[in-house]
Structures are given as structure tokens and as C-alpha cells.
Design a protein around this nucleic acid. Structure first.
Lengths: 217, 217
DNA sequence: CATAAAATACGTCATTTGACGTATTTTTAA
DNA sequence: TTAAAAATACGTCAAATGACGTATTTTATG
């Protein structure tokens, strides 16, 4: 039996992309496409025989999170996979709270998208690796305080910088960090200097505090 | 370059099974096998050049969750994948809190195990689908964990010491703390020295971490 | 393949921190 | 009231940290 998919996505071009990705698979039928949450709810009212909804987050009229909540309240059997470009903690958390069964980034390739649809129908929780990581971090750090404007100011730490900051947060000194990462202590110090500049702090404790507040570690 | 794996698992047969699964892959080297957490810590002290640890949970001497915590404190760069038969919420949650990077069930097939090792080295969070689902559920309704015995081991900080430790945890230096509390920097330093002795630590970050774990601040 | 970003590494210098020792005053509790 | 605990304070010295500058190599990305 064919898998019945609905797509909620306002960007026409992205809808095309998703359709093309799914066109490779014979077990997939796209039942309908909605340009926003409100339209999705309307179409579902006419026909709720849908297995999986691929849901964008940012949409006019009604966003994907609100739509997820409504759909899940009325048709809990329908699986919802968020399919979005946003990997912010806030969106991920809100989506999961709203009842989303999976969370994928739009860059996902066709095969993985298809696998994810099968997985969600098998009571799994498909997530792109980076999202899985973020959910674990959210679980570790159960501080869901409202972010202030300052907290959301985008700060990008590189992979190495994040790694070093984590080691700093464990109380390790420069030499131990250097040993662990098999680099010179000079390099560790340079990375830390860069971290401090990015976070606008002047010592380890402040750096760790700020990074935790921004969910960077 | 080969991927260096360590296994912590008390059951001989299961060790064999894991070894067989990994034997298919040429990019994998099994550095060593430990029969429990204590043995693992010992072997890591001799040689910490390990990329990924596959960790059982139920082991004699020291279980996998405690071992995860210790390894992550000393060698945060080592990735840890829990590999166990237990899919209880409690175990999953505790493992993640302890710092595990992934959580797989032992029934996993060879290919997926290999993929997971690559994924965790790529900063992902490999999980079997049923575990991924449980983490989402845990995120939806956050649980609260009881303290372990060790966390409650009696350490008494005086009122002044607690006060100073809180200021330390905010990233303030000795001089600023002295100003805030209207005492001499020398006194601040002496208090901190006493705090370190009581908590058996050697720098600010460790002191703050330990105090938080013991709910002293 | 070119360019940008990231990671690597060293040197210097002032400041801060951590680990000692010693000692006086104040507070708390038996 | 007296002993113990807590708080106060200073000095010294080695080690660690933070803030600069400079420069080469490696990795990503269009």
C-alpha cells in the first residue's frame, strides 16, 4: 500500500524540491500540498487519510508549530515530520512539545528522507544527526528559560572551539586540554583567546557561563 | 587513519558478538576491552588514545553510567556510545546526563553499528529509533532525578565560603569579590583555599562544578 | 582552483591564581 | 566561660592565565 504524504510549505521552489526527491520512490503518494498551517487544517478536514505530514515551520497565516499542535490534537495518528532550515533550540523544542514525531533539515538527501518516512511510520523518531545532538543537549540542560534578546545574539563557535570550551568547563587546564586533543598548549591558548573575543568575556568561568546560556555547550 | 575503539562489557559472549560485528570493517581497531568501569578507567590512564568507547550499563565494580561520567570529566574528547539491552527511561536519561554521545541497543546490526561510530565521530548523536523516540518523550515531559549517594557525601561549607563560591561561579576575580563583600583580597584567597581543601579540588571551575553537583550553591 | 575560514604554533609580558605558612580577632556552641 | 570554628589578614613563590602580535598549514566551499 502506498504511503500517503502531505506537504505544508509556503515556498513553491522548496515544494518542488521535496516532490522531486520523493518522486524516486514508488511507495510514496503526495496527497496534497498546503501553503500554510491554516490551509493544511482545512484540507485535512476534507480528507484526513494521510500517513505523514512534512511540515515547514516558518509559514504565513499559521506556522508549522501551531499547525502541528492542532493536527496532533485532532488526528493523533498522523505522523508529523518537521522539515525546515532552522536548527535553533527554540524551534526544535517547541516542535517536539507540539507533538512532532521527527525533525529534519531540508538539506537532507532523497534516500534519507524516504528512510525517515518509513522510520516515523515504524514509531521511530527520525532526526538529522545535528538535531539529535541538540535534543540530547536540551535533555542535559533542562533550563528552558525565556531567552533575552542578548542570549539570541548569534555567536558561532567553530568545532574546535566548542571542543575546547567543553574541556575548559570540566576544569581542565591548558596543558591537559592540549594533551587530550593532541595539539600544542599554544594553540589551545590561541583558541581560548578567540573564544573569549567571540563571547566577549575575559575568563574561563564567564566563557562557560555564557556558552551554557547560549546552549553552545 | 584507523578508528580506535574500546569496549566496556562484562559479558564475554557479548564482547565476542561486538568484536565479530566490527571485524567486517577495516577502519576499526579495537584498542582494548574492559570488564567493568573501574578496569576501563585504569586502562585509559595508561593509554587514552581512544576515539570511541562502547559502554555497557550493567557491570560489576563500576557501572557504565558512573564510568561515563568519570571518563567525560577527564577526557571530554572521547566519544561514548552506550550499548546495552536496557531501554528504560531512567537509564537513557542518566546516561545522557552523564555525558553519553549516543545510545544503541545491542540488537543493532553490524552496518548500523559502524555507521553509528562514524556518526558520533562527526559530532552526531547516534540512537536506535526506539531510543530517539524515548528522548523526545523525555523532552516533552521532563523528569526529575534523585541524587546519588556520592553527590550527598557530607561537605560543610561555611556561610562565608558559600557566599564566595557563588561569586566565583559568576566569573568574578578575587579583587571584585573582596570589594563586593567588603573584605581584603587576602581573605578571599584564604577562604578559597579552604573551599578547595574541603571539596578536594584545585581550581575554580572544579569547585563550582562539584558544589553544583552537591547542591551547595 | 581560488579564496575564506579554521586550525596550527610560538613569543612576550603583566596579571591572576593556587598552595604554602603564620597570626589575630570574632563568633558559636558546649 | 572556654574551647572550637569561622573570619579576618599578610607574605611568598611557582604556576597558570589572559592579551597582545605574527605566521604557516589545512580544510571547506563556491
Amino acid at each position: 500500500m502506498k504511503l500517503r504524504i502531505a506537504i505544508a510549505e509556503d515556498n513553491h521552489f522548496l515544494v518542488k524540491t521535496i516532490q522531486e526527491k520523493l518522486s524516486f520512490f514508488e511507495d510514496i503518494t503526495i496527497k496534497f500540498i498546503a501553503k500554510n498551517g491554516a490551509e493544511l487544517i482545512g484540507k485535512l478536514a476534507d480528507d484526513q487519510r494521510v500517513d505523514v505530514i512534512l511540515m515547514d515551520i516558518q509559514m504565513p497565516e499559521m506556522n508549522g508549530i501551531k499547525a502541528t499542535e492542532l493536527v496532533k490534537n485532532q488526528y493523533p495518528q498522523i505522523k508529523i515530520i518537521m522539515l525546515t532550515v532552522y536548527d535553533d533550540d527554540e524551534y526544535i523544542f517547541d516542535s517536539i512539545k507540539a507533538g512532532a514525531n521527527g525533525y529534519l533539515l531540508k538539506e537532507i538527501d532523497a534516500q534519507k528522507l524516504h528512510d525517515s518516512i518509513l522510520e516515523v511510520l515504524n514509531d521511530g523518531a527520525p532526526m538529522t544527526p545535528s538535531i539529535a545532538l541538540k535534543t540530547l543537549n536540551l535533555l542535559r540542560n533542562p533550563t528552558f528559560k525565556t531567552d533575552t534578546k542578548e542570549d539570541l545574539e548569534e555567536v558561532r563557535l567553530s568545532k574546535r572551539e566548542t571542543e575546547i570550551l567543553i574541556q575548559l568547563s570540566k576544569g581542565l587546564n591548558y596543558n591537559l586540554i592540549a594533551e587530550n586533543l593532541v595539539i600544542s598548549p599554544s594553540t589551545v591558548r590561541k583558541h581560548i583567546e578567540n573564544i573569549y573575543r567571540k563571547l566577549q568575556v575575559h575568563n574561563k568561568m564567564e566563557a562557560v557561563l555564557k556558552a551554557q546560556k547560549k546552549n553552545l555547550i
